[in-house]
């Protein structure tokens, strides 16, 4: 038995990355970043606000959190709707109480179905970024390019109509991109994408159509990963986020501003028994003198405005 000889060819074995989307870079040798008002840790809370059709699509893949039982899956359809009707309002109230501005990555279906939620998000000062059409709008390389483009444009245009201005940011469902996604996002006029998880600061990604900022939202620091997948408690999540904050604020003294990302899902965090611990976490972070609660757009703008 032997392998195809090509298995031992390494055509991309070279200095730097094995692709051209972005260049290699050591976080600790970059010029230090300074956030506004002398703050050193940008706390970036991102909420995934999603609508799951009761008829799930497996093309190109079924979204995490989607229907699980045979049709009609009332259990998961309604439990996800709980997050939208109830959980997200618990989160919004908690944000208001703690003075937190968040980024909400919303399916376009939320704007179509529940325009009052969009109004409430905007009234709270939160930023809305596009999160595809609905939870059947998944992207992967086997999705034809014209279908992916149509999905991106529909999400963009729906929010443009609902908000009055085009959304500047994008997050794919499950952060899953095709080879084409960054270019299609550039072509659609997006300024930043929140899919990659390889950095603690923004960086520039380059496509044949131009550049786009990649703003990492660590997928591990999320209620989906820590609570739904890894079965940890909100108390543990809070401890981990506080430990992360402690580390980053110390690191920032020597190396410049840092970002602490936290991704939330209304139907996970927004349950009654988790909210007290979550609010205590928010209050604790809000009391930190180093904390700057910032939206994705505010972080990208501040970062882009600094000499590098």
């Amino acid at each position: 038995m032997s392998l195809d000889p090509a298995y031992l060819d390494y055509p991309k074995r070279r200095a730097g990355m094995d692709h051209d989307l972005y260049t290699a870079s050591n976080l600790f040798t970059r010029p230090p970043v300074a956030w506004p008002d002398g703050k050193s840790v940008a706390v970036a809370i991102l909420v995934n606000l999603e609508w799951f059709p009761i008829l799930p699509s497996d093309t190109p893949f079924r979204a995490p959190g989607h229907m699980q039982t045979p049709y009609p899956d009332y259990r998961h359809y309604t439990a996800r709707e709980y997050g939208t009707r109830v959980g997200s309002y618990r989160l919004l109230d908690a944000f208001a109480k703690a003075g937190v501005k968040a980024t909400v990555a919303a399916n376009a279906a939320i704007a179509e179905r529940y325009p009052s939620i969009i109004a409430d998000l905007l009234a709270g000062g939160h930023e809305i970024i596009a999160h595809s059409t609905d939870m059947n709008g998944t992207i992967a390389t086997d999705l034809p390019e014209d279908e992916e483009r149509a999905l991106i444009l529909k999400a963009r245009d729906t929010f443009t109509q609902a908000i009055g201005t085009a959304p500047r940011g994008w997050q794919s469902i499950a952060r899953s991109q095709s080879w084409n996604t960054p270019r299609l996002l550039v072509e659609a006029g997006f300024d930043y994408m929140c899919d990659w998880v390889n950095d603690d600061l923004p960086y520039v990604a380059t496509t044949s159509a131009g550049t786009i900022v990649s703003l990492s939202f660590n997928h591990e620091l999320s209620d989906r990963q820590l609570i739904a997948v890894q079965q940890q408690s909100m108390d543990s999540v809070a401890q981990q986020v506080e430990d992360a904050f402690d580390w980053l604020k110390d690191e920032a003294i020597r190396f410049g501003g840092r970002i602490l990302p936290l991704t939330l899902t209304p139907y996970i965090t927004g349950l009654p028994y988790r909210m007290d611990a979550f609010e205590a976490l928010l209050d604790g972070l809000a009391a930190r003198p180093e904390a700057w609660f910032a939206t994705a757009g505010e972080i990208v703008d501040s970062w882009q405005g600094q000499a590098r």
Binding site: A140, T141, R175, S178, W196
Partner: peptide, 19 residues
């Protein structure tokens, strides 16, 4: 596990060399 590019899987590993 996903069709290439597996953005989360690859990006997660790339974090090692950047950060």
């Amino acid at each position: 596990p996903k069709p290439h590019p597996d953005v989360v899987g690859y990006g997660h590993r790339d974090y090692a060399n950047r950060v």
